[in-house]
Simulated assay, not measured.
Amino acid sequence: MSTTTTTDQTKYKLCYFVPPSSLQATKTAIFATNLAGVFSSLTDTSKVLYTNVCWETSGTGQFIPGPESTPDIGTRGKLEILEEVRVEIQVLGRENVRKVVEALKSAHPYEVPVYEVYKMENF
């Protein structure tokens, strides 16, 4: 199984926030790329040891939809406080991150999905 489309082995971490009702859909879209949450052997990177690896934690988010918004959740001009899940997934290679983020955006219910990408160091 090929897990990367590039020789770039730079590690990145994708973190995003999603309501619990859409958690599985976003993870399914991301993992379907075969580019995220894949861990290989430290001594032989051609051996994939784990797939669909991620970290999840629950928390509370808030926002006020603006007058030009089309919110999936909430009402324009009214504070919305809701449970969300923070998901963290490792991705190898900058171009792979772009593809994984596109998969996230396509499956995420928010008009503007909240996500962050961090470049990781290898020690």
Rank of each mutant, 00 (worst) to 15 (best):
Leu35Trp: 00
Thr57Arg: 13
Ser41Glu: 10
Phe39His: 05
Leu42Gly: 03
Glu56Lys: 06
Thr33Cys: 03
Thr57Trp: 14
Lys47Cys: 07
Phe63His: 07
Tyr50Val: 00
Leu35Ile: 01
Thr57His: 15
Phe63Gly: 05
Leu42Ser: 07
Ala32Ser: 07
Val38Thr: 02
Leu35Phe: 03
Ala32Trp: 04
Gly59Asp: 14
Val48Ala: 00
Ala32Arg: 10
Gly37Met: 04
Ser58Arg: 15
Val48Cys: 06
Gly59Arg: 13
Lys47Trp: 08
Thr51Ala: 01
Thr60Ala: 13
Gln62His: 09
Leu42Ala: 04
Ala32Met: 00
Ser40Gly: 04
Thr33Lys: 01
Gly37Tyr: 02
Thr57Cys: 13
Leu42Trp: 02
Asn52Pro: 09
Glu56Pro: 04
Phe31Leu: 10
Cys54Asn: 14
Thr60Ile: 12
Val48Lys: 08
Leu49His: 06
Thr43Trp: 09
Phe39Ser: 05
Thr60Glu: 15
Cys54Met: 10
Asn34Tyr: 07
Thr45Glu: 11
Leu42Thr: 03
Ser58Met: 10
Gln62Cys: 08
Thr33Trp: 10
Tyr50Ile: 01
Ala36Glu: 03
Lys47Thr: 14
Leu49Trp: 05
Ser41Phe: 06
Asn52Glu: 15
Ala36Lys: 11
Val38His: 02
Trp55Asn: 14
Thr60Trp: 11
Ser46Met: 08
Asp44Cys: 06
Asp44Gln: 13
Leu35Asp: 08
Leu49Met: 12
Asn34Val: 00
Ala32Leu: 07
Leu35Gln: 00
Ser46Val: 00
Thr57Pro: 05
Gly59Phe: 05
Gly61Phe: 14
Leu35Val: 03
Ser46Trp: 02
Asn52Lys: 12
Thr51Leu: 00
Phe31Met: 06
Val53Met: 12
Gly59Asn: 08
Phe39Cys: 09
Cys54Lys: 01
Asn52Thr: 13
Trp55Met: 12
Ser40Asp: 04
Gln62Val: 09
Phe39Lys: 06
Asp44Ser: 02
Asp44Val: 05
Asn52Leu: 07
Ala36Phe: 01
Cys54Glu: 15
Ser58His: 12
Cys54Leu: 12
Trp55Phe: 14
Asn34Thr: 00
Ala32Gly: 01
Thr45Met: 06
Gly61Glu: 15
Tyr50Glu: 05
Val53Phe: 05
Ser58Leu: 12
Lys47Tyr: 02
Ala36Thr: 10
Leu42Arg: 00
Thr43Ala: 02
Trp55Gly: 11
Asp44Thr: 03
Val38Ala: 00
Trp55Tyr: 15
Gln62Met: 10
Thr51Cys: 08
Thr45Asn: 15
Asn34Pro: 03
Val38Gln: 06
Glu56Ser: 11
Ser40Tyr: 14
Thr45Asp: 03
Phe39Asp: 07
Leu49Ala: 09
Ser46Gln: 05
Gly59Met: 12
Thr33Ile: 07
Thr33Phe: 12
Gln62Ser: 13
Asp44Arg: 03
Phe63Val: 10
Thr60Tyr: 01
Leu42Asn: 01
Glu56Phe: 08
Thr43Glu: 07
